[in-house]
Structure formats: structure tokens, C-alpha cells
Amino acid sequence: MDAELMQREFMYPGHVACPGCGAAIAMRFLLKALGEKTVMIIPACCWSIIAGPYPQSALKTPIIHCAFETAASTASGVRAALDMLGDTETTVVAWAGDGGTFDIGFQALSGAVERNDNFLYVCYDNEAYMNTGIQRSSSTPYGAWTMTTPGRDWKKMRKKNIVEILAAHRIPYVATASIAYPDDFIRKAKKAKEIKGSRFLHVYTTCPTGWRIPSEISIKIARMAVQTNIFPLYEVEDGTRYTINYRPREYLVREYFRMQGRFRHLTDKDLDQIQKMVDEDWQRLLSKAGQG
């Protein structure tokens, strides 16, 4: 990363994210890429707290807090207003968690991207409702414990594949990114910034609190998610052109799962099953990228 990018910050310290919060890191990276001419739309999510209580702000860009389900529609409105004001320079960003994206905000998101509304939607995915205290979302991965999938009721359903759903809308740009790969992340954010129409970034953001992991391995876990193919880094342009950005060393998912308290209950058999699921998804992705 060049020195200028390294130096520029659009976030203030003193924000109130948990120690090791991946979402805080993701915001830093995103704004490094986008710069100050950005309006952040933030629905209910961890970041509605992290950004600081009134009268504080943790960002050097404007933030419009909005209702849980309305990140995309609010962003559409902000974009429409800027266009009417003749401001085509400012980047409008909807910045939502997985709950606000996969679940409650899904309709608004689908609607906005179907209209190809001109903004960047970033889902920082910590795989559960973390701000409310770790409840299951449709982004919670198979096998995970949460407060609403306790004990033997651990989640038995797959994580919703939001990237494929977005790609199916045939929007100009959909990509995954990880806090463990800052250069890739920032490149994608910059690329997204230059594209007109709906753009979607799915960002993997570790949650030490909710995943029951030590905060210091926050980045390491994110890296392992990529290395194990659990969270592949790829881009889909116009819903059809797939590019895989990182060919992992294909570590076993077991190593990733065994490091996290939320998966502690899983047996070796469960992990074998999960490995199969991950392998299968990876093969499907490879074939979409024409590398199968």
C-alpha cells in the first residue's frame, strides 16, 4: 500500500467498537479507498453504535443513520438528491451488517439494485446479529452456535449466498473482500467507486466477541477464511464475468473451525461434512469462473 493511502484516514480514534473489531478495520480500509467525498448510510447494525453516540462522530465523512431495513432505499434517495443537486462526484455508500443486508434489508437492497441505483452497497458480514448480542441471521454459517441457536440447536442451514444473489441481478459489479487482504479490498473499493450503477461489496469482518475468539487473531481468522475457501475472494462483473482473485493454499476448514468457540461443539464428522460443502461451493465457483 502506498504511503499516501497508508497515511490518509477518514476515521477518528475513540470509536466504541469492541477490541479487535473487524468492522472497524473494514470501515478504515473502505474510506481510505473512497476518500472524503463520501456519504455513509448506516442502518441499525454494530456501526450505528461504533460511530459514536450523539453528539459524536467517528467519521470524517457524513453519516446518515437509517432504519434497519432501509440502507439501500435511503442510499437510493441520497443518490437521487445528489443528482438533482448536480453532485455526481460524491460516492454514496450503504454500509450495513449481514442482518441489514441478508435479512431485513434484503427487499430494499434487491429493489435498489434491480433499479441499478447508482451507489455502493457494502455489507460487512460478521455472520450474526452481533449488535443485539449474537443472534442467528441468514448469514450465520452452517454449524454455528449463536444465542438463538444454542446447544444442539446449532444452525443446520447453509449461509445464504448473497454474492450469487446480487450477481443474479446482473449489476455491474459484485465482489467479496476481506479485512485480511487490504490491498485487494482497497483495489476493489476503488474500482467500485469508479463504476456507475449498483455495486456490491461483501466484506468478511471478524467478530471476536460473537465468534468466541481472542481479539488478536481477528485478522488471522479472516485470512484463514480465505485460505480455506470458506470465503473466496472474487469479483463478478455484469453478473456474468467471474474473476477469482486469490487462489488459496487450500487449507483444511478444520483448522479454521477449531479456532473458534462458536464451532466448539462440532464433531469431526460434522467438520468432514462442512469440508464437503466448502469443496462443493468452491468447485461451483471455479466452474463459473471457467476454471472448473
Partner: peptide, 26 residues
Amino acid sequence: ATFMRMEGEQSCLAALIGAQAMGVRT
């Protein structure tokens, strides 16, 4: 004006909240 054909009423008003906050009549 920009005429926004939304996918539901909550989005209609949400869009206006966003737009009006930026300083336009809605």
C-alpha cells in the same frame, strides 16, 4: 424531478428521508 419507482412503501419513505436530508424537496 427524479421519479423513484420503489419496491415498497417503507423504501418510498426511506428514500425520501435520504433525499430530504441532502437538502432537496420531496
